Computed example of a mutant assay.
Amino acid sequence: MKHIAALIALAFPLHAAPESRSIQASFYCFQYAPGIQSIEVPDGGAGQSVRLSTANITPAVSLTLSGNDALVFTSGDKTKPAARVTVPGELGKALIVLMPAPAGSPEPYRGFALDYTRDRFPLGTYRLVNVSKHPIRGAIGRSYAEVQPGGVAGLELQGDEGATQGVKFEFNEKGKWNRLTETRAAVRRDRRWLVCVYQDPTTQRMNLRSIPDRDYSVTPPTATAALSE
């Protein structure tokens, strides 16, 4: 299990210029920062505009990193960084999740990167991300995972294609497990899901958001990334 706290730590300035490298990156916006729904992604050339979505994961685009540091900008203005995200050196394909940064932060978004390769995040699996302050646990059929605050875990669907299985997620508060959601889902191996568990800052209620993805092909470097349907 990895910890988001380590993934979203801001990079410190280096005395020597870090090497640049290119990866494929998709984006999911957990919640819009005020007034910023599009970002400019440096790709070693003119850059690409990506329209963020709170409902879908964007198709992959080329992203140029400075060392392990991904810096994206407010759309149309490369003097205004929108987010600075640490991408582990071994990642060649990343899913970058963005969320509004706390008041007083240098950039409007903070974020973290997940391994988006088929080996680490295969079709037929759920990637469970806990961005709340409570431990959570979830089960889909025979698959089970517990995730601490800031943690990430995978749930791989078991059983025959199309079979319906029970789904149950809970969170722990003051030593007691409380139901978050309980439903049923069909086994599908033609897609994968990002599942974020969070606490609503207004209502303080625990919520779960599931975002399906079909592993879109890479967008040509000269094209503008479009949202999935």
Rank of each mutant, 00 (worst) to 15 (best):
F112E: 00
L208M: 10
T183L: 11
G45I: 02
Q31A: 15
K78C: 08
P135Q: 10
A163H: 09
C29N: 07
Q31V: 04
S217Q: 13
D69W: 03
G151M: 06
Q31C: 06
L180T: 00
R21I: 04
P149E: 13
L91M: 15
V87W: 02
Q48F: 03
P42L: 05
G138S: 09
R120H: 12
G151L: 01
T54H: 06
V97C: 11
R110G: 09
A11S: 14
V218W: 06
V147H: 03
A82E: 04
W177E: 04
P122C: 08
R118N: 12
S20R: 13
V195F: 02
T222W: 13
L95V: 10
A16W: 04
K80L: 13
V72W: 06
L194A: 04
A101L: 05
G67M: 07
T54R: 08
P122E: 07
S228L: 13
V195A: 08
Y32F: 13
E19A: 14
I23H: 06
V97I: 15
G162T: 03
L227V: 12
T183Y: 12
F12C: 09
A5K: 09
N178R: 11
R21N: 07
Y28H: 14
T181H: 02
Q37P: 04
V97R: 01
Q31G: 08
K174C: 08
G111C: 06
P221D: 15
A5S: 13
L71R: 09
G104D: 05
A33C: 09
Y109D: 01
R184N: 04
E90A: 13
N172T: 04
E161I: 03
D115F: 06
T86A: 15
L7K: 06
A60G: 07
A145D: 00
S210G: 11
A103S: 10
A223M: 13
F12S: 15
L7G: 10
L180I: 01
A94G: 14
T64M: 12
G150M: 05
P102A: 07
A55V: 11
G76L: 11
P34C: 05
G67D: 07
T79A: 15
I57V: 15
A225C: 14
G166L: 05
Y28E: 11
P220C: 09
T181I: 09
F73C: 03
L91P: 03
I4A: 00
K176P: 06
D215E: 09
A163I: 01
S75N: 12
